[in-house]
Computed example of a mutant assay.
Amino acid sequence: MIHTICLNPAIDQTVGLAELVPGEVLRADFVRLDPGGKAVNVASVLADWGLPVTVHGLLGADNADGFEALFTRKGIADAMIRMPGATRTNIKILETGGRTTDVNLPGFAADAAAADAVRAGLNAVTGLAVVSGSQPAGLPADTTARIVADLAGQGARVVLDVSGAPLTEALSAPVLPYAVKPNRHELEAFAGRSLADRAELVAVARDLLARGIGLVVVSLGTEGAVFLSAEGGVQVRPLALATGSTVGAGDAMVAGITAGLSEGLPLADLARRATAFAAGKLRNAGPHLPPKAEVEALAQQVALCPVEAWMAGH
């Protein structure tokens, strides 16, 4: 059983437009609603791959129906704690050319008691656990770090995908996650300096490895991603087939990383798997994978470059 932890879920409302023109009255081409939040998306994709998954965290009681329907449809075990109020809505404005503008609305507030209840529900979790996404208002900045420390202390391998203060707290704590997936900007915020230079970026990532993290994946947008572990390092070039909404693509990559870890894949194969998950998700609206054979075929198309060659500009 893989466990995902989502403290601040969201309903993703994707609005399709020909072009976003500020100040104008615009007519939408379509609108769709998807239960989301990073760790919910990860759970959804893992379930599509056929892995057993339980989702933990906090969920607004007023509009939980869509989440409950998703969990039932995909066979995801629901261990989320219901909170008074509604889960927030994140508006994704998707233009025909592919550009997406996010407007994230506020949701329910939580307190230390709610965080403690989530932590109590995780006290028997071992194996793989994914902690991803933001924290709701009202929680201390170190809440995510405490959850990571709890899980790691129980022997769980934690895959972490958060940003801002929760990332800094988690990476500064004595007990670290097993794997972390920041993007370049998030890693720069943690390091406190620009990492435009490739060698500098890799040096910061390798410092995390030296401190005890087993796998560091840095997503680089149009440059793909860098995967580093004790086995070495590779840069993965993105597949040029983005045809759908990018909403949840990063979460699909986290799901691919987790699926690869669950199977004990070597670094190169894990990088291909994660990239194929992200590319496969782009073929679907919402956090859903295409059929397994299609994802495996995508993985065979992924091109890898040794990280040393990438740093040298090749």
Rank of each mutant, 00 (worst) to 15 (best):
V148E: 04
V307W: 05
I147E: 00
G153A: 05
Q235V: 12
N63Y: 11
G155Y: 01
D34C: 08
S219A: 01
L304S: 11
E24G: 01
A170P: 15
T4A: 04
G224S: 12
V40T: 15
L298Y: 07
R283K: 09
A285W: 05
A110F: 03
E296L: 10
G57L: 13
C6S: 08
H56D: 13
Q235L: 15
M311I: 15
G127Y: 12
A28H: 09
H56S: 15
G75T: 07
L58D: 14
P177I: 06
A249W: 09
L94K: 12
G37T: 11
F190T: 07
A268D: 15
T168G: 13
L187V: 04
S172T: 14
T101I: 02
A271I: 14
R272A: 06
E296V: 04
M80R: 14
K181V: 01
C305G: 10
H56T: 13
P287H: 08
R273I: 08
V234Q: 00
R73C: 05
G214T: 04
A47T: 08
A274S: 12
L139S: 02
V25M: 08
I11V: 07
V131L: 15
D207H: 15
V226R: 01
A141S: 11
L241H: 01
L105G: 01
G97K: 01
P9Q: 03
L289K: 04
H288K: 12
A149C: 08
K281H: 13
R157Q: 14
S229C: 00
N104P: 04
T100L: 12
L151G: 12
V302W: 09
A86D: 12
Q154W: 01
D111L: 02
G85I: 09
G85T: 09
G250H: 06
V118M: 05
A293I: 09
L239H: 11
A173E: 05
L17W: 07
D251N: 07
A152D: 02
